[in-house]
Amino acid sequence: MLTKTKTRWWLYVLLSVLLLFVMLPFFWMVLGSFKPNSELIASPPSWLPQNPSLDNFVLLFEKAAFGRYFFNSVVVSAAVVGGNLMFSAMLGYALAHLRFPGKRIIFGAVLGCLMIPGLVLFIPQFILTANLKLIGNLSALILPFLVQPFGVFLMRQFFLGLPKELAEAARIDGAGELAIFFRVYLPLAVPAFATLGILTFLGSWNNFLWPLVVSVNESTYTLPVGLALIANGEYSRDYGLLLAGATVVVAPVIAVFLLLQRYFIEGIATTGIK
């Protein structure tokens, strides 16, 4: 009889070695962030910091204004996630369960936008933002991303999976359209919110090209922009500092990932199967 999985010990060894290599850059990053530069460029290298210190982090937050970038990243991500959850749910619900003129055109437009890469949009968006006098303002990092076609599509697909009879039953009970949306369908959408929230958070936290383009001074840098610019600037050879900066960028994401891994993995896997 055919067994479904055969345990092969050599595969465990192989996967473990692979896992070690996949994780190695992260170990090196965290360990290196506590090392002074002299230790990082020493030969032979040492894995554990000989004289662990927080100097790199202190320098990051005092000299390089990483506190400001961190704050910006948090504000932008929170606003973008909130906006996407709310607006995607509204539009997604309308496209799934309501009837109104132009519905097909709107849905077509959403799908069309889904296919346009950010590279094409950033120059016209920049001109628009400049004319709205928002360059150098944190809202320039938030407004263009408040609602994204991917989220609308995801929520529409999710709401399509919920029965129409729920709305009909509520209508017979005399509920208004707003009440049906907020009190009947929204509470059922929590799993979809988790997936969408996580994906939007990742996209926003790691976003680079647009924040780089619209940030004219330090006050609106997000973490990736701040890190890339100090790496190309005066601290480009200060490796301990750069590893500490990378740690600050990556650590919150990994923490969220470990906390919510179930939603992460399921969410990603379902986006692939349509």
């Binding site: 896992l19 994780m23 850059p25 990742l202 890190l227 790496a231 990378a246 990556v250």
Partner: peptide, 19 residues
């Protein structure tokens, strides 16, 4: 473990790889 790199900022991991 294998999925972890996917969620991290390219800027940050590129920095680490440069080192």
């Amino acid at each position: 473990g294998f999925y972890t790199p996917v969620i991290t900022s390219i800027v940050a991991v590129a920095e680490v790889w440069r080192v």
